[in-house]
Amino acid sequence: MRALAILLRLAALVLLVTFIAAPNLFAPVFQPLTTYDAPAIYNQGSLFSLTLSHLATVFSAALASTVVAVLLGIFVTRPSGLEFLPLSRSLVNIGQTFPPVAVLAVAVPLVGFGEAPTLIALFLYGLLPIFENTLSGLTNVSPLTLEAAKGMGMSARQRLLGVELPLALPIILAGIRLSVVINLGTATIGSTVAAKGLGEVIIAGLQSNNTAFILQGGLIVALLAILIHDALMSVERIVARRLGQQPAGAAA
């Protein structure tokens, strides 16, 4: 079963790379989905460059969300920050309370069209899973472990960096994985405000009633989500194995 899973992942990767690098090879597959001699393959831009732009937007937002959510999670698990936990939860829930489309509508008048409003929407949308997993990881560190570290003369900072964060890392990584995978699909709406990405392909298909374009955009996003999810899961397993833990995603 493990060998079969690896082969399926490799097949998906080969399919994705081949399609975005030489999409015209697949024209016969998509031709039956077109009408009135419409193009079978998206021809208003490079699928390769749109994929790179899509990934750049998602990972830039994920990096910003990770930094803010992890730092906030650390702060509210310290004695001096406990009282700010309810406020912090309210703040990171904003991204989930307001749909990304609504965030775009608010952001565009403030920062203009392009990548910026999309990054803001994805940043806000990605905070909650990372923040909650950071809280869970840090609060689930065994008090006995912390007492042992304290007994060894480690300062609070040393315990955080040398004990708490390493032990919480698999759970934090699971939150980052969830955030990234969710935003891979959510990022497609960025094309409604002129952000470069795979949403352009889907929107072009909707505007021209070309099912082939819609399917191509959706297929690339789906393959990216599957492959990136599996890659991040592998990282979690490696980290958890080194720590002698059960991977956080194993039960998901």
Rank of each mutant, 00 (worst) to 15 (best):
Q207M: 03
N210K: 02
L243A: 06
L215H: 05
L227Q: 05
L47F: 02
L119T: 06
I220G: 07
L160H: 04
F98I: 15
P109Y: 10
N209S: 00
R177Q: 10
L72T: 06
G197K: 09
Q31N: 05
V193I: 12
I189K: 08
F59T: 08
G197I: 04
Q246R: 13
E132K: 13
L146P: 12
A12L: 14
V180E: 07
L110E: 12
G197N: 09
L122P: 02
I41H: 08
R2Q: 10
F213H: 02
D230C: 09
A174P: 06
L135S: 03
A251F: 12
D37S: 13
L161R: 11
G112I: 11
L161H: 07
A212G: 07
V221N: 14
K196H: 15
P117M: 09
A116N: 03
F75R: 02
L82F: 09
L13C: 04
I94H: 07
A156Q: 14
I41Q: 09
G217S: 15
P109C: 11
L227V: 04
Q245P: 01
S136W: 07
G197Q: 01
L198E: 00
E147M: 13
L110R: 14
G153V: 10
S90G: 13
S80Y: 12
A40Q: 04
V108F: 07
S65E: 06
L47P: 04
A64H: 09
L119H: 02
L71V: 01
G45M: 12
S191R: 09
V70Y: 04
I130S: 05
G197L: 00
T186N: 08
A27W: 08
T34V: 14
I20D: 02
T34H: 03
P129R: 10
V29K: 12
Q96F: 02
V181K: 05
V103G: 00
F98W: 14
T18Q: 02
L71F: 04
L10S: 05
T139I: 10
L144I: 14
L47I: 07
V76R: 02
T57W: 09
T145L: 15
G199L: 04
P86E: 05
R159N: 06
